[in-house]
């Protein structure tokens, strides 16, 4: 990832950390689902791709994604100047970083507790 994308990812990460709660479900498996579901759909919205929202859980991810995509666009004007393939790279980087911060690199010892 080049430095510019890196910097952009950081900005988006900061936004999510400051304003969102969905990335902090209490268990690792839920965090994986949440990050995947919401960030994938956010990417799809930003790239004008169709978004799956038939099941209740998909709909819930979509709801989060709609707001997140809107906030990203409102707060980061550079986003609207990006090509779709660039957005995909950006969002892939974002997903990796959020996964790292909330799952793989997390210091939260309860994430692996097998029950709620």
């Amino acid at each position: 990832m080049d430095d510019i994308i890196q910097e952009q990812v950081e900005q988006l990460v900061d936004y999510i950390m400051k304003w969102c709660l969905w990335q902090f479900n209490s268990r690792a498996w839920d965090r994986e689902d949440q990050n995947e579901g919401i960030l994938m759909k956010t990417m799809q919205i930003l790239c004008d791709e169709p978004v799956e929202r038939e099941t209740p859980s998909d709909k819930c991810y979509w709801v989060e994604a709609v707001i997140l995509a809107r906030d990203f666009k409102d707060n980061y004007p550079w986003l609207s100047k990006m090509e779709k393939n660039e957005i995909k790279i950006l969002m892939k980087g974002l997903k990796e970083q959020i996964d790292y911060l909330t799952i793989t690199g997390s210091l939260n010892k309860e994430l692996t507790n097998p029950v709620y």
Partner: peptide, 17 residues
């Protein structure tokens, strides 16, 4: 969150924080 997680698991009801 425990009951929301369980409701999601058992009944498929999504959890919106």
């Amino acid at each position: 969150e425990y009951i929301c997680n369980e409701l999601r698991k058992r009944y498929g009801t999504p959890r919106l924080d």
